[in-house]
Amino acid sequence: MLAVEDLSTVFGGKRRFLAKPTPLVRAVSQVSFEVNEGEALGIVGESGCGKSTLAKTILGLIREASGQIRLGGKTVSGLDPKAARAARGDIQYVHQDPGAALDPWWRIGSTLDETLAIHGLDDKAERTRRIDQMLEAVGLDPSMKKRYPHELSGGQQRRVGLARTLALRPKVVILDEPTSGLDLSVQASVLALITSLRQQFGLTVLFISHDLSVVKRMCDRVAVIYLGRIVEIAPTQALFGEPRHPYTRALLASAPRLTKQTHPVSITGDPPSPTTLPPGCAFHTRCPLAMKTCTAAVPPLDAVKDQHKVACLAAVKTDAIPAPITS
């Protein structure tokens, strides 16, 4: 459905008139993955790892520096942002904070109506019909159309965000942190809604999150990103059952779980700044398994098992590393 090959996005690095050149930031480096139709791919990483930039690049809001994006077999990369967005109309995005993604001066109904109108649906009655249908699908009352964004609760705002995106009938939906900032009970109902919408509309989903427990529950496969690169990608079962990359293992060990862990912290320090990436594997500064060769070159993303790929020299060499967590 969606294939991304060697995708890189850079910021800055330009010389400005009478000013210092902005530092070059490699936000996304050589990312490759494929998502099959109806599949949910989780993209996991900490803040500043480039997961939102990756989403916006795929969406076409930011222009890629290099690499290819193919949507349903057609190449949709190498275009300027306006054309890229038009070519990628089948990919839609649900914002991290859907409340802020709604114009505070517009009623919900008007916003939804406008969304469809922008997409060339000129028949007013058809728009209304589709909006009502979508509101029902996300479990909102049609009376919501008369409300303003600030009158909605956090959970309702997420639902409106989902309805807005789904009304466009996209093939691929990018969900950016769909539950961050929500209370646990609201998060649970939003996750349940996403699951049912996926079944109902057969959506292909890119699920961006920092919350491993949520990703484990929602996704078929998971890619772990550290400083703009995929360090490990595998089916959910394999990733959580036999994590290979030391960073993945650290993330899993750090996630606050309901059962008390005996060795909670396995890595120390903070990620280095993306403007001054360490040479070689970017994780070697914090890695318990780091070797001399790690600083020489970026380790390639190699398959260790059929669908399980890891970018780590140590992980590939030792085939069976004991998993830190038994769950």
Binding site: E46, D211, L212, L251, S254, V265
Partner: peptide
């Protein structure tokens, strides 16, 4: 905070 920092 991020998960790894949170744990620390």
């Amino acid at each position: 905070l991020d998960v790894t920092t949170q744990a620390q």
